[in-house]
Nucleic acid binder design. Structure first.
Lengths: 206, 206
DNA sequence: TCATAGTGGTGACTGTAGTCACTGCACAGG
DNA sequence: CCTGTGCAGTGACTACAGTCACCACTATGA
């Protein structure tokens, strides 16, 4: 397995060797579904390259939980793996990605043997928790225009680009609102000169 | 220290002994502030009896994060303690409480020595994360009447009572809305026969 | 005793965003 | 070629909740 070990350099080198020995590397094309609700988790993912979107669904509405970037893992999978409970979330690639799949049966062993592996997941939990807090403060304090603009901004940052190709309906899903509202607000942002829209692509200007 | 060890029975007995040896027990009256924003965390709390409210503040608005019930701990303090960063939250007792204070310098040792202590915090993180998800779905899907009613319901459940003594303004804070709105909605819930109000006390009827 | 602060109740107004209904456009497949 | 499907744009309407400006009641203590 010819993986760039730098991505895992924050872990104990011995642990990295052990992980690489037992895990499998999977290359997943953009847009593929990795995990569905109710599915049991047999392998814990660590994203080496690319971007994975994690979301859940309430009554037809989709709610974006977080993005897994390179060298991050998925706390929801971690929980499901530890407790052997079915997944409550969906995961889908947003770009072509390389994902390392750690078999769950080794997880307790590694956690015991290499205590600093715990830290990785504590940090991830904390990160995800903070992100949710941000989402909530956004919901409570900001209006749609600011929420939508910020959402686009983080999307472009994650993609290292100043443009996103996404439909209004999809954006509406991710923000828990309706398509018409997104259309309207995007129009306003456009006349305000903050974004531009062309051929299904949204560009951030300022 | 004459503490009922049953409350900590989910932990390794040896660990419990070690914890009891090094920790101090604090009895805190109802309504006392335990932790402020920006304060450094020198002792990690485990609540033995009572109820502690954890909340944060954005721009004058208070946001309820979670309640710490008996035999639970505080993940925000845990994080602040591990990283030695100042607290981002406030904590306040909602009832007379007995709190065990674990000195943070022992934390890394215990976590290493007794790996199942990690599980306690993973479980707490997961619990808090799920609670935030519930909050968000509430914000996205429900109107004020349902949000307020459910909020009162969980409050009474936590207090093992069917009545709560709380001002409309305080409720407004906890839900991130305005006092007048709470007054209005409570009135509606009252005429619908779901609650009753007497002398500053709100009773859940159905 | 009166002043004051804290709380609760209400009517009137307003803005945001969710919904409905419809149009137009592009593109793929029969 | 037409047709169906998915996406975008828009005007009209509505309802919820946030805000403002009041008034009333109760406790507290100076």
């Amino acid at each position: 397995m010819e993986i760039d070990k730098k991505v895992l350099s924050f872990l104990n080198p011995k642990l990295v060797d052990s992980i690489l020995k037992e895990s499998t590397l999977k290359e997943v094309p953009k847009g593929a579904e990795i995990l569905r609700e109710q599915q049991y988790v047999k392998a814990l993912p660590i994203v080496l390259e690319g971007l994975v979107k994690v979301y859940s669904r309430f009554e037809e509405k989709e709610l974006l939980l977080y993005y897994i970037e390179s060298s991050q893992s998925c706390v929801m999978s971690f929980y499901a793996a530890r407790k052997n409970t079915p997944s409550k979330i969906f995961a889908q690639t947003e770009e072509d990605s390389k994902i390392l799949l750690l078999p769950v049966e080794y997880l307790p062993i590694w956690l015991k043997e290499y205590p600093d592996l715990n830290d990785l997941f504590f940090n991830q939990y904390n990160l995800r928790y903070s992100e949710l807090l941000d989402t909530i403060s956004h919901l409570l304090l900001n209006k749609m225009d600011k929420r939508l603009y910020d959402h686009l901004k983080t999307k472009t940052t994650l993609l290292n680009s100043n443009a996103v190709k996404i439909s209004h309906g999809q954006l509406a899903n991710e923000l828990g609102t309706a398509r018409e509202v997104v259309s309207r607000v995007l129009k306003k942002l456009e006349t305000d000169g903050k974004i531009s829209q062309n051929a299904g692509e949204i560009k951030i200007i300022s």
